Amino acid sequence: MHRRSRGSGRGGIATADPSNPHEPPTPQLAGADPLRARPTEAAAHARAAVDQATGILTARLLLPPDRGLDVLRTVSQHLDEQLPDVAEDIIRWGLGHPLRPSIAEELRRLVD
């Protein structure tokens, strides 16, 4: 269900949520992919994992608050692994599971 949006002046379209007839349509630019207009659930989960892992690194390794994310990114880059995947391993470590040896070695190298 697409209808022209009013007042945008850019030739955009408005998409209505068919599951909620009371919600006003969300303005979209013509040709925009509505699935990319909002963060997906997977992206939100990945961001939350990165934030949690950053906090765990900061607390367990006694890092300055701004250094935790830098360490997490560097480990991810050095291991050539996606940041959220490394973050999930750090979270498991924070919950008492053993840390993967490759991650442990990188952390030792970066922090010591």
Rank of each mutant, 00 (worst) to 15 (best):
M1G: 05
H2G: 01
R3G: 05
R3A: 11
R6N: 02
R6F: 07
R6Q: 08
G7C: 04
G9Y: 03
G9M: 01
G9I: 02
R10E: 08
R10W: 04
I13F: 12
T15A: 12
T15E: 09
A16E: 03
D17I: 10
S19R: 09
N20D: 15
P21N: 07
P21V: 14
E23A: 15
P24K: 10
P24W: 03
P24D: 10
P24I: 03
P24R: 12
P25M: 08
T26Q: 09
T26V: 12
P27N: 07
P27E: 10
Q28T: 00
Q28A: 00
L29D: 07
L29I: 09
A30H: 11
G31K: 04
A32E: 15
R36A: 13
R36V: 04
A37L: 08
R38F: 10
R38N: 04
P39H: 12
E41A: 15
E41V: 12
A42R: 10
A43Y: 05
A43V: 03
A43K: 07
A43H: 07
H45G: 00
A46I: 02
R47H: 07
R47L: 08
R47G: 01
A48Q: 15
A49I: 01
V50P: 04
V50G: 01
V50H: 03
A53W: 06
A53R: 00
T54F: 06
G55D: 12
L57S: 13
L57K: 11
L57M: 15
T58A: 09
T58G: 06
A59M: 04
A59C: 00
A59G: 00
R60L: 10
R60F: 02
R60P: 01
L61T: 00
L61K: 05
L63E: 00
L63V: 04
P65K: 08
P65F: 02
R67C: 03
R67T: 12
D70R: 13
V71P: 07
R73P: 00
R73L: 11
R73C: 11
V75L: 08
V75A: 14
V75C: 13
S76R: 06
Q77G: 11
H78N: 13
H78A: 06
L79T: 04
D80R: 08
D80S: 09
E81Y: 12
Q82K: 14
P84Y: 11
P84E: 10
D85T: 11
V86W: 03
V86K: 02
A87H: 01
E88N: 14
E88V: 15
D89N: 09
I90K: 01
I91M: 03
I91D: 00
R92Y: 02
W93Q: 01
G94K: 15
G94F: 10
L95F: 06
G96K: 09
G96Q: 08
G96T: 06
P98L: 15
P98Q: 14
P98V: 12
P98A: 15
L99F: 04
L99Y: 02
P101H: 07
P101N: 09
I103C: 03
A104K: 13
A104E: 14
L107N: 02
R108S: 13
R108M: 09
R108Q: 12
R108E: 13
R108V: 07
R108C: 05
R109G: 00
R109K: 07
L110D: 03
V111P: 07
V111C: 14
V111L: 06
D112K: 09
D112H: 06
